[in-house]
Design a binder for these strands. Structure first.
Lengths: 206, 206
DNA sequence: CTTATACAGTGACAAAAGTTACATCTCTTG
DNA sequence: CAAGAGATGTAACTTTTGTCACTGTATAAG
């Protein structure tokens, strides 16, 4: 409870009380799917601990990364969809053990009116996700795969707070919508330039 | 005034009155820049007539298309930025003669609380723009240039309500972040397959 | 009418990325 | 520890896209 206050210091006390009274805390293992393409959303969630990756699935099951959700953040899509009870167009999955706070959607409309801090939180959530999509569009539209790979590794390191990226080349290729061989090739080049060290199932950023 | 009501039938009467009392109608010629990268936004706007294209500028001045705004719509970015008085990261420009209704940003917060119809309008604006960005990401991440070109032509035709797309190959290349020769090549192929007819400064969709 | 100027067509080539096809290598599991 | 599964390395090739260089052509301006 104290952790929640620390993560969302901007929320006023009454909102905090409502959140605690109505929210359900869920503990999820890594790899748990929180939202599925085409699924209708019944509740929104705040991330308390861990990490959630939001992605689109392509035809072959590849998981094209959109962005990560971190503690103190909320899923804009779940709020948007919840507000209109519409189907989701993206997937969300935990990448590590994660704690979320589920909030029934019928509260959202009232909170928007009753709590200024909630209203501002929702708006800034929209704005931040929108910005992340803009950055993503820049990457896929303007950057080559080598640059995208480097950005990807750096972001992964930052988000997971470790310079060791524990993913196979295939997983990285999926998240960038490329192919394993291309990623292997580029990683090899980066290793020759002493930008990374390659391990099994892991890439270490220098 | 009656046209405004027809374009925004969902707005309640009092909101309509506020809009009419506080909004400023502006008539803009084609090619007018409404929003510039890095610029701070002082007001938001509703599109009454015409068409606005929202795009990102690349290093060489190419205008990479994000989406169009049409009558009855509002610019999500201007609302988001206005709400936080932050700098814009995109550009907006009229593509034809356009009438917009400018609304001073200080009214937005109050309207969100006072008018349910405004609140829902803003949320659905967010949702729609978000969806358009998702579609754009799909295109650049998953589709080849020939498919993207076809989608682009179809969308342009739909938005401008004409099967004749009055743009040079260079302009099309810019909006897709490609090069003139590539677009010429692909258009030629499409012409051979009887999908389009090529004119000077125009492409006709069949 | 002539001459710039912007637009379009095209061939040749280069670069980036995707594909195919194997060869190794490194764990895990029985 | 042997076998199999999953992971990685790599060469050869194709496809897609981008770039360069040049030609022709329509249109507007003088």
């Amino acid at each position: 409870m104290e952790d929640i206050k620390a993560l969302f210091p901007q929320f006023e006390t009454e909102l905090m009380n409502e959140i605690i009274a109505n929210g359900v805390i869920k503990n999820l293992p890594a790899g748990e799917v929180l939202m599925r393409t085409g699924q209708f959303i019944k509740s929104t969630m705040l991330i308390l601990e861990g990490n959630v990756k939001v992605f689109r699935e392509n035809e072959d099951g590849g998981e094209f990364l959109m962005y990560y959700l971190q503690p103190g953040e909320a899923c804009a899509i779940s709020i948007i969809c919840a507000a209109k009870t519409e189907a989701s167009r993206v997937m969300a999955k935990t990448t590590e053990e994660t704690t979320v706070l589920m909030i029934p959607l019928q509260l959202l409309d009232r909170w928007m009116l009753d709590y200024k801090s909630w209203y501002h939180f929702v708006l800034s959530t929209y704005r931040n996700r929108f910005d992340e999509l803009l950055v993503l569009i820049d990457q896929v539209a303007f950057r080559n795969m080598d640059e995208r790979l480097l950005s990807y590794l750096e972001r992964h390191a930052k988000v997971h707070n470790s310079s060791i990226i524990s993913l196979s080349h295939q997983q990285i290729a999926d998240e960038l919508n490329s192919s394993r061989e291309v990623i292997s090739r580029l990683l090899k080049k980066m290793e020759q330039r002493h930008m990374v060290i390659l391990h099994r199932n892991a890439v270490e950023l220098i």
